[in-house]
């Protein structure tokens, strides 16, 4: 049964380090990392013996879209799942280094449930729960203690509006979410994620299972919601990264090769490997 959340993730030096000291060190030594909305510092990740991420240090600026690109198997999705501890579910997964949220150590000082509320996620395959549209969106707020009906109604409407799907769904809130089209399902999942008011939204190739029209709608939506949220997206589509993101990081075989403003990375890459990859794709 691979779903035991209670199993502690082995985390390097968790016992030996004094968490107070550690956090102070983070605040003092890494001003720029601490200032970013979210950041990783010297992050190494292993799946059993496989070394999947090598010493990654990267910051995700607030209210911007950061795109993670690279060939498949390069570790970009792995990094994304590390940010909200979804990697805890993978047996044999070990994380070393720091994940910072507002400069605080997200792994040692935050309960995973709190971390995941603050750092929401949209998955590659739309995964609405087998319940009504309303219950899907209300699930998160209910989880976090909202009980009053009026308040839930308000959150559901606001979240669906933010995900630009209120007009399509307002008349079928009581219908099963499984009856929606793939694109609608994915926007519903975005609404569901927004309903708990996260600070960061992770998107794991959220458009790869969708048709071009739905993809365009979601890209437009990301442009909208970045005014309020910090978005980190993994994409296999470099044009999408170029269209949507403010900052891009390029990964290759578990290394972060290069990161910088999207325009710069695509037009004047500093690393030859980035240049090869970007050009290879663009022909």
């Amino acid at each position: 049964m691979p779903v035991e959340k209670t199993r502690p993730v082995s985390f390097a030096c968790v016992e030996e380090r004094d968490p107070q000291l550690d956090r102070d060190a983070v605040f003092e030594a890494n001003d720029s990392l601490a200032a970013a909305k979210m950041a990783v510092r010297s992050l190494d990740l292993y799946y059993k013996d496989f070394h999947a991420l090598h010493d990654v240090t990267l910051e995700f600026p607030e209210k911007q879209v950061t795109a993670l690109i690279g060939p498949s198997g390069c570790g970009k999705s792995t990094l994304l799942k590390t940010l909200n501890r979804m990697n805890d579910l993978v047996e044999g997964c070990r994380v070393e280094g720091d994940v910072l949220l507002d400069g605080a150590d997200a792994y040692r000082t935050l309960d995973p449930c709190v971390l995941r509320r603050r750092v929401g996620m949209v998955f590659q395959q739309p995964n609405p729960f087998p319940m009504s549209v309303y219950d899907n969106v209300a699930y998160g707020p209910r989880t976090h203690g909202v009980k009053r009906r009026a308040e839930l109604d308000e959150i559901v409407e606001e979240s669906l509006r933010r995900a630009a799907i209120w007009d399509e769904l307002k008349d079928r809130l009581k219908k099963s979410a499984l009856g929606l089209s793939g694109g609608q399902q994915q926007r519903l999942c975005i609404a569901r994620a927004l309903a708990v008011n996260p600070e960061v939204l992770l998107m794991d190739e959220a458009t790869s299972a969708l048709d071009p029209i739905s993809t365009a709608k979601i890209e437009e939506l990301v442009g909208e919601i970045k005014r309020d949220y910090t978005v980190i997206m993994v994409t296999h589509n470099m044009l999408q990264a170029l269209r949507v993101s403010d900052k891009t990081a390029f990964f290759l075989l578990g290394d972060m090769v290069e990161a910088g403003p999207t325009e710069e990375l695509f037009t004047t890459p500093k690393d030859q490997r980035t240049a090869d990859y970007v050009e290879g794709r663009f022909g």
Binding site: E62, K63, D111, C113, V114, R117, P141, T143, H144, G145, V146, E151, I155, E158, V196, N197, E199, D228, Y229, T230
Partner: peptide, 14 residues
Amino acid sequence: GPASDDSGRFEAPA
């Protein structure tokens, strides 16, 4: 992030 008046709406589930 989003400026809305839902202060204290959520409890920490922990």
